[in-house]
Design a protein around this nucleic acid. Structure first.
Lengths: 160, 160
DNA sequence: CATTTGTTTTGAGTAATTCAAAACAATATG
DNA sequence: CATATTGTTTTGAATTACTCAAAACAAATG
């Protein structure tokens, strides 16, 4: 664990020290207790958006060896219901998580290497939120996933 | 097994008799052998689009008790790769299958009762096929899922 | 009708995730 | 600041949806 100097609040914010406080702050303001596994998951997710539970477990466990995979699942579940992270579930992939929430953004997934990137939708502000015929549904969200080949995989495919 | 009268091709098509032939025809023209489990799965999928493997197994097994769940998975896999059915995988749900393929249509899912309906996209012919920034991807498909409350669930929610 | 090729059965295995009880830790309270 | 309360994590097991592999079997082909 990094040295958390509790008297550091008198000084100017140094980035390395400030970051854990920011993470703790967002956990606290989501109404959740701040714990070491939660900080570690949130930091891992900051560094590696679109990670799955297993990858996050690997990152977290490296710095905090006591942490269990189930704890990571638990942290992710509480974060997701608290609106602190967003869970995405592309076909054929385990669930992925990201901190970018509250905006209406979508994803583009490479069918070959499975890399995921964020994309904003083409159609203005609230893209595709109105289907041609909502069939009486009260539509609350529209989820768009683009599938294709990322540029590296296009390159790898043309020169094999 | 229904009586397959191979001499029936001389007569006019009766609907009850014609249907198995139509099903067989589409299996054959997908380059697949026609078998009883395949006919049964395709028929079940005609009657109940957006079914999962388990539900299809139930329907198929009722009429063809020898059929195994793995056979249903096998049939669905071959149908999917042959382009005869489409597999959709909404978040939090097992995979669903439908016969409506080749057109660009999307889905609307009830967050309460999980009912699924087809929808055409609002934005013309190839909806959302162009993300704001494709990030160098060669985009091949766009998948849209709308989430909301279906009309029955809206009613059930307002008068509890 | 025999052969080939593809399909299904049977049985086992796996990945991702969830559940439950007990141990434990963070915040609220006296 | 000690303690109670509540929420979190650990440990261990279970479950769901799905895949794999070998042997038995059936459809199409010549």
């Amino acid at each position: 664990m990094t040295t958390t100097d509790s008297s550091s609040d008198h000084a100017g914010l140094r980035l390395a020290a400030a970051e854990p406080e920011l993470l703790a702050g967002s956990i606290r303001s989501a109404g959740l207790k701040v714990t070491a596994p939660r900080l570690a998951v949130l930091r891992a997710l900051t560094d590696r958006p679109h990670s799955n539970a297993d990858a996050l477990f690997g990152l977290v466990h490296a710095g905090l060896p006591g942490t269990s995979l189930q704890a990571v699942y638990g942290v992710l579940a509480s974060f997701t219901t608290a609106g602190l992270v967003r869970k995405i579930e592309p076909a054929g992939s385990p669930a992925l998580f990201e901190r970018r929430v509250g905006d209406n953004h979508h994803h583009i997934v490479c069918t070959r290497c499975n890399v995921v990137h964020d994309v904003d939708c083409a159609v203005g502000h609230a893209p595709c939120l109105t289907p041609a015929d909502a069939l009486g549904f009260d539509v609350r969200a529209a989820e768009v996933i683009y599938w294709g080949l990322c540029s590296s995989c296009q390159a790898a495919t043309s020169n094999p």
